[in-house]
Simulated scan of single mutants.
Amino acid sequence: MRTFGDRVRHAILFELIGLAIFTPGAALLFDKPVAHMGVIGIVSATVATLWNFVFNLGFDKAMLRLRGSVEKTMAIRLVHTALFEAGLIVALIPFIAWYLGIGLMTALVLDIAVVAFYLVYAFVFNIVYDRAFPIDAAMPHATA
C-alpha cells in the first residue's frame, strides 16, 4: 500500500501535469485563450475533487441505508460512475458556457473532450507513476 505522503505526491503531480497538458491543448483545440482554458481546467479539477468527496460519501451512506453494505457490484459501479459524471456535467456545463461565452451544447462537447483526455491521461499517468515510484512491499509502515 502507498503511504499518505506518496498519495499526496501522486495527487499533486497528477493535477499539475494534467493541467500543463490540458491547458495549451484545449486552447489550441477550441481556439480559446490559454488563460481561459487554464481557468476552466483549475475550476473543473477543483469542482471534480469536491464533488468526488461529497458524492462518494453520499453514495456510500445511501448504499448502507438501502443495502446494509457499501460493497459494489459491477452494476452498482456502473451506476455510481454514471451518476458521478452526470453530477459533474450539471455542475460544470453552465459554468463553462458562461465563462467562455458559448452555448450549452458547445460546452458539453468541450466537457466530453476533457473527460476523454483525462481518461487516457489517468491511464498513462498511473502506469508511469507506478514505474517511477514503485511500491516498496517491504515497508510495514505504509498505510492506505
Score class of each variant (00 low, 15 high):
residue 2 R to L: 14
residue 9 R to Y: 02
residue 9 R to K: 14
residue 11 A to D: 06
residue 11 A to M: 14
residue 12 I to L: 15
residue 13 L to W: 04
residue 16 L to Y: 08
residue 16 L to A: 15
residue 17 I to K: 00
residue 18 G to D: 04
residue 19 L to P: 06
residue 19 L to V: 13
residue 21 I to D: 00
residue 22 F to P: 02
residue 22 F to I: 07
residue 23 T to W: 01
residue 24 P to Y: 03
residue 24 P to R: 06
residue 25 G to L: 15
residue 26 A to C: 10
residue 27 A to T: 07
residue 27 A to H: 05
residue 29 L to F: 13
residue 31 D to K: 13
residue 32 K to H: 06
residue 38 G to W: 02
residue 40 I to Q: 00
residue 43 V to I: 13
residue 43 V to T: 06
residue 45 A to F: 14
residue 45 A to L: 12
residue 45 A to T: 13
residue 46 T to M: 11
residue 52 N to K: 06
residue 52 N to L: 09
residue 56 N to A: 02
residue 61 K to G: 01
residue 62 A to Y: 08
residue 62 A to K: 10
residue 63 M to C: 08
residue 65 R to K: 15
residue 67 R to V: 11
residue 68 G to M: 09
residue 71 E to D: 14
residue 72 K to C: 09
residue 73 T to D: 09
residue 76 I to Q: 09
residue 79 V to R: 05
residue 80 H to T: 04
residue 80 H to A: 04
residue 81 T to N: 05
residue 83 L to A: 15
residue 84 F to K: 02
residue 84 F to S: 09
residue 84 F to N: 08
residue 85 E to G: 06
residue 85 E to W: 09
residue 87 G to C: 08
residue 89 I to Q: 00
residue 89 I to T: 08
residue 91 A to Y: 04
residue 94 P to F: 06
residue 94 P to I: 07
residue 101 G to E: 12
residue 101 G to I: 14
residue 102 I to W: 03
residue 103 G to W: 10
residue 103 G to M: 13
residue 106 T to Y: 03
residue 107 A to W: 00
residue 108 L to R: 03
residue 109 V to F: 10
residue 109 V to N: 06
residue 110 L to N: 00
residue 111 D to T: 04
residue 112 I to M: 14
residue 116 A to T: 08
residue 117 F to P: 02
residue 117 F to D: 01
residue 118 Y to S: 04
residue 118 Y to Q: 04
residue 120 V to R: 01
residue 120 V to M: 11
residue 122 A to I: 08
residue 128 V to T: 04
residue 128 V to I: 15
residue 128 V to L: 12
residue 129 Y to K: 10
residue 131 R to N: 11
residue 135 I to W: 11
residue 135 I to R: 13
residue 137 A to T: 12
residue 137 A to H: 14
residue 138 A to S: 15
residue 139 M to Y: 08
residue 143 T to R: 14
residue 144 A to I: 15
